[in-house]
Design a protein around this nucleic acid. Structure first.
Lengths: 201, 201
DNA sequence: TGTTAAAGTTTCTTCTGTAAACATGGAGGA
DNA sequence: TCCTCCATGTTTACAGAAGAAACTTTAACA
C-alpha cells in the first residue's frame, strides 16, 4: 500500500519496470503462460501502457531474451575468470555455470531459445547471443594455445561444446536428467566424455 | 469440393483427422502459432468439436508430442539398422537421422521439448520419450561390447550423446549452425569431437 | 420401432493482443 | 510567468481464442 496511490501519472521508467516484472514472472513460472496484460497488471499500469514502450508483445519477449543472453554471458564470464588448476576444470566450471543459469531461470532460458526470440529480425538480440557464444570460443582458443586441447578444428570444438552444454541445460530443465536414468552427477559425467574428446590423448 | 458437402454428420474418425491436420500444420509452420480453432477449421469441423476427443488444447499437444517421439524413434531405429563399416559410422548416421528429423519437423521437434509437452503429467508421453531415449543406449551398449567404445560409465555416455545430438538439433533448427560460425558440416565435425571422447584411445 | 448416448453444433463468457481516441502533466518558448 | 506541445499515460472498442453449457443429429441396440 506504500506505493499504490502516490504513484505519479507518469511512471518515470515504466519500460524498465515492465522488464523487471516480466523477468520476475519468468523466474517464477516454469509453465509458460506469459501475457502482456498480466505484466501490465502486476506493474500496476493499464493494459495498453506497455505499447508506448514496446511495439508488440514479441518485441518485449525479444528484449527479455536479449537480457537473458547478456546475463548468461556474465555468469559464464565470471565463472571462467576464477583461478583453476587446469583448463579442463575451467571448462567444467564454465559449462556448469550455464546449466545452473538455465536451472535457475528455466522460463527465461527456454525463451532465449524459443521461436519467440527470433534472432533474424532483431540485430541487438542476435549480437547479444553471438557475444555469449563467443565465450566458449575464447576458452577453447586458450585451451588450444596452452596445450590442454587438441589443436584441430576449433569451430567443430565450439559447435560440439556449445551443443553439449545447451543440450544438457535443456534436458536438465525438462527434468530428463534423472539420477536413475543417467546416474549421479550426469552433467559432470557427460562433460567428462566430451572433454575426453577435446583433450589431447 | 469433393468432400466438402457429402461429409456425414459424424466424421468417422475425427480424432485421427484432427491429429493429422495438426501435424501438417506443425510441419509447415516454423512460427509457432497453434490454435485449436484453426485445427478445427482446417479439419472442416466446428471449433467445439475437438473437445469431444481432447480434454483441452494441451492434451492434443501432448498427443502430438507423443507421436513425435514415436516417429523420431522409428527414424533413428531405421537409420541404425542399416549395414555399417563401423559402430562409429552407425553412431554418426543415427545421430544425423535425429537432426534431420528435427530440421524436417522443426515445429514438432520444438513441441516435443517444450513445456507444453509436460512429461510429468502424461505417462504415455513419458514412456514414448523414454523408449526413444533407449535407442542411443542400445547403440552405445553394442559399441562397448564390440570394443568400439570405451567401457566406462555408459550412463554418462548416454547423457553426453543425447545432450550433444539434441543440442545440435536445437541449434540447427534455430539457424545457429551457420557455416561462417562453425565451419562446413558442423554436425559431422561436432559429432567427431564427441566420438573421440567415446571411442577407445 | 423407439430410446439412448456418442459425437456433432451453437451460443456464451472470459481472456488476450492490439488499435484508436482521449487525458495528463512536465518541459521549453512567448 | 504562463501557455502550449508531446511523451506517456488511460479508456474504450474489436476481433480472435479457450473452454463451458445447452442443444441437435444419428447410429446402434433392446
Amino acid at each position: 500500500m506504500s506505493e499504490t496511490k502516490d504513484r505519479p501519472y507518469h511512471h518515470g521508467d515504466l519500460r524498465r519496470a515492465l522488464i523487471d516484472t516480466a523477468l520476475a514472472m519468468l523466474a517464477t513460472n516454469q509453465n509458460w503462460t506469459f501475457t502482456l496484460r498480466e505484466v501490465a497488471r502486476r506493474t500496476g499500469v493499464s493494459h495498453a501502457a506497455p505499447y508506448k514502450h514496446f511495439q508488440d508483445r514479441e518485441m518485449l519477449l525479444r528484449e527479455l531474451a536479449r537480457i537473458g543472453f547478456v546475463r548468461l554471458g556474465e555468469c559464464m564470464a565470471e565463472a571462467m575468470s576464477q583461478d583453476f588448476p587446469s583448463t579442463r576444470a575451467q571448462f567444467v566450471t564454465t559449462a556448469q555455470a550455464c546449466i545452473d543459469f538455465a536451472l535457475g531461470n528455466p522460463g527465461l532460458y527456454r525463451l532465449m531459445f524459443s521461436s519467440d526470440a527470433d534472432k533474424t529480425i532483431d540485430p541487438q538480440l542476435h549480437d547479444a547471443a553471438m557475444n555469449t557464444f563467443a565465450i566458449p570460443l575464447r576458452l577453447l582458443e586458450d585451451g588450444q594455445e596452452d596445450g590442454s586441447f587438441r589443436k584441430v578444428g576449433i569451430r567443430a570444438q565450439v559447435a560440439a561444446s556449445w551443443a553439449q552444454v545447451h543440450g544438457l541445460a535443456m534436458l536438465a530443465i525438462s527434468g530428463q536428467l534423472l539420477e536413475d536414468k543417467v546416474g549421479p552427477e550426469p552433467v559432470r559425467a557427460a562433460l567428462d566424455v566430451l572433454l575426453d574428446g577435446l583433450c589431447r590423448q
